[in-house]
Design a protein around this nucleic acid. Sequence first.
DNA 1: CGCGCAGCCGAACGATCGTTCGGTCGGAAC
DNA 2: GTTCCGACCGAACGATCGTTCGGCTGCGCG
Lengths: 201, 201
Amino acid sequence: MASDARRAGRRSGNPEPYTLASLVEVAARAFNERGYDATSMEDLSRAAGITKSSFYHHVAGKEALLRAALDRALDGLFGILGEPGAVDGEPLERLRHIVRRQVEVLATELPYVTLLLRLRGNTETERWALARRREFDQAVAGLVAAAVDAGAVRPDVHPVVAARLLSGTVNSLIEWYRPGRVPLADLVDAVDRQVFEGLRR
Amino acid sequence: MASDARRAGRRSGNPEPYTLASLVEVAARAFNERGYDATSMEDLSRAAGITKSSFYHHVAGKEALLRAALDRALDGLFGILGEPGAVDGEPLERLRHIVRRQVEVLATELPYVTLLLRLRGNTETERWALARRREFDQAVAGLVAAAVDAGAVRPDVHPVVAARLLSGTVNSLIEWYRPGRVPLADLVDAVDRQVFEGLRR
DNA sequence: CGCGCAGCCGAACGATCGTTCGGTCGGAAC
DNA sequence: GTTCCGACCGAACGATCGTTCGGCTGCGCG
């Protein structure tokens, strides 16, 4: 079959066949280190181990790499909203499920979500991703408001402000969390308690 | 006096004399909108109402603008640590004071603090600012640890993680707070309660 | 009045950017 | 053995970047 020729690098002992996903991973990591604009295609191709012109043989361009990475992040986040724990039950427990799962997705898809949370909206691709991200945040905000209506939270919380602070707390993980340092299960519990119980004894 | 000649634009009805501070403000706002790298000196000079070459008559360069803005942000933050409320009293109350004041500084110095919190560390200037910011965060983290030792917080909090989440919650304000929408005093109370009391009733 | 100089500008500098193009190489297909 | 094609490369493209330079203008001061 002709499709078999696709497997494994044709040239010298090349361990990887340079799939799109592997190059997106390399790119996402580099984008996060230096920033999207400050990362050149030369940087990316060197990180992948090939020249700039060879790099273009595998990917359509810089923005396509960004788009693929953002797609992966958004798929992970929106996947949470469809889970049973996010659909069934009392608003507060549904919110808790989303928060805990969001921590997990942030951790497992860290490079991609980091990219998503740092967008400035300069290109059409970035604005599209920002719009989808806003959708997700509004779903969470709706649940906060529902929890307020149900009387499950402190009566003095401003639903909109509380939702922003909640998302801010969870999203701030990308600034410092690195895999392997803190067990993920412990982190999920820590965020859960911090958000819903607060710091004070 | 020769220093009087500095006042008011020499040419046609120019309202402002293009002080360094006013240009830094313009630059900080532009940097936040599009990102530092994506903002050209052409963009900045146009926002200031003069040409690119005239702009260079007032400022040393792009990085000098960034440095001036970061200086202002760091001065605001470190000023908090010296206030009586941050020095005297029980650890938890000192921490509360810092959190509440930090919200105020973030709000009043929004463009500059936003710039500080988005640094990637590409240049020497950025790395210097990041190091100072880390100093501030460690001061806060030390206070969280002290509050844990004093038994003033939930006994199961991990001091380091809790400090990160606390800073993350406060710093996330830059992502959505805009002056005039929510009264600042209300925001301070909302963050205070969210951090220390949590969401649940 | 005439000199100095701050404020401002147009034009151009070298560097670097994302992207394209023509071509080489070597294993697979027939 | 010849053809074919995917993987790869060097060189160059036009565009844009931050920065510099020389010169113009008109007010303030002596």
